Simulated assay, not measured.
Amino acid sequence: MEVRKVSERIIKGFSTRTDNETEMNPNTGKIPALWKMFDETVPVNYKDGERVFGVYFNYESDHHGQFDVLAGFDGASTPSGKEIEQITIQAGKYLVFTHRGEMPQIAIDAWTEVWQYFSSNKPEHKRLYSTDFEYYPSENQIEVHIAVK
């Protein structure tokens, strides 16, 4: 893991409101259906440099409260006939957790590392619960960015 300064960035896609308790149950989780809709609707042009993001925002409180999640991308084109939302990733300092391998296991592994780090006795960095995001530089790599003070 490493600390990075991130510039503001606009991401477009689809969102839902949920919480971690809901997502821990495969029968109630909303995020898998959100990603399925995104994957079936948005043509991401990786060859021209477009990339996929999962953005977490509008935190009610901490990891126990509700939050919004947006499955999105940074491309110019948007599918017609679908209402696309837009969120701004806030500029700032982020702690980045990187994993490589097969999806969805790398996402599970990255978030497991995030939870372990922030639930340790005295993490060096404190979460802001402002805007966090997943960045997918390729189909077999994930970078989870957590906003920190």
Rank of each mutant, 00 (worst) to 15 (best):
L95N: 05
E102K: 14
E8H: 03
H64P: 00
G101Q: 09
V96M: 10
Q141E: 15
S130W: 00
K36F: 02
D48R: 12
V3R: 09
E124M: 03
I89M: 08
N140A: 07
G75A: 09
F133A: 04
H125R: 06
E85Y: 08
I89Y: 03
A33Q: 12
G75E: 11
E21F: 01
V148E: 04
S61L: 03
G13T: 07
F133R: 04
D132F: 04
K126C: 09
K47V: 13
Q66H: 06
V148L: 09
K12Y: 05
G54Q: 09
N140S: 13
L34D: 11
A91Q: 14
E40D: 15
T18A: 06
T98R: 14
P26K: 06
R127M: 13
I106F: 05
F53N: 11
A147K: 07
E143T: 01
P123G: 08
G49S: 08
V52C: 14
L128R: 12
E50Y: 07
I89K: 11
Y46N: 09
I31C: 07
Y56V: 05
L34C: 06
D19A: 02
T18L: 04
F67V: 05
V6M: 10
G75I: 07
F118I: 06
S138Q: 06
K5R: 14
R17V: 13
P104T: 09
T78L: 13
Q86H: 04
Q105R: 12
Y56E: 09
H99Q: 14
S80H: 08
T131N: 10
V69A: 10
H145I: 01
F53W: 06
I146K: 08
D62K: 03
S15F: 02
S7Y: 02
N140Y: 00
K5H: 14
F133T: 06
S61K: 09
A110E: 06
E134D: 15
K126M: 11
F38A: 13
F133P: 08
L128C: 10
R51E: 12
R17I: 12
E8A: 15
T22C: 03
S138T: 14
S119R: 08
L128W: 00
G101I: 04
K36A: 14
V52N: 11
Q105Y: 02
V144A: 13
A110Q: 08
E50S: 12
D109T: 07
A147L: 05
F38M: 13
I106M: 14
G65D: 08
V148K: 04
G49E: 10
W115H: 10
V6D: 00
V52S: 13
G13R: 03
F67M: 03
K126R: 12
T22S: 07
K36D: 14
M37K: 15
